[in-house]
């Protein structure tokens, strides 16, 4: 299968993730959309790795998974802390900061 198809799939998933971040109001779902974007980037990296015949892309994808795991821990800790303080995970309720 041509790598262009994989890259196109990665682009579609990336855009879906962007949509999720922009549209959803629940902090956890927004963060899940960011995870989808990271996964799309990983797919692009693995495809590019196959395109060029070296494993650097796979190693980068591997590091990106590690980074995503650490980020999830930090992000969910922040969300849990806010939930405890406010009993709500909705980003609209966190509105003390106005533009």
């Amino acid at each position: 299968m041509s790598p262009a198809a994989y890259l196109a799939l990665a682009a579609v998933l990336f855009s879906l993730g962007c949509t999720g971040v922009l549209l959803r109001r629940n902090a956890i779902v927004m963060f899940m959309s960011v995870e989808l974007m990271l996964n799309a980037a990983n797919l692009a990296l693995v495809t590019a790795s196959r395109m060029h015949g070296n494993l650097d892309g796979q190693v980068f994808a591997f590091f990106s998974m590690t980074v995503a795991a650490a980020e999830v821990v930090v992000g969910l800790a922040i969300i849990v802390q806010i939930f405890r303080s406010r009993r709500s995970a909705s980003i609209d309720d966190a509105s003390l900061l106005k533009l």
Binding site: S2, P3, A4, S49, R50, M51, H52, G53, N54, L55
Partner: peptide, 13 residues
């Protein structure tokens, strides 16, 4: 510019 036929990872693997 883009390889339509991927180099593939048989070699690298």
């Amino acid at each position: 510019a883009l390889n339509i036929v991927p180099t593939g990872l048989e070699g690298a693997n």
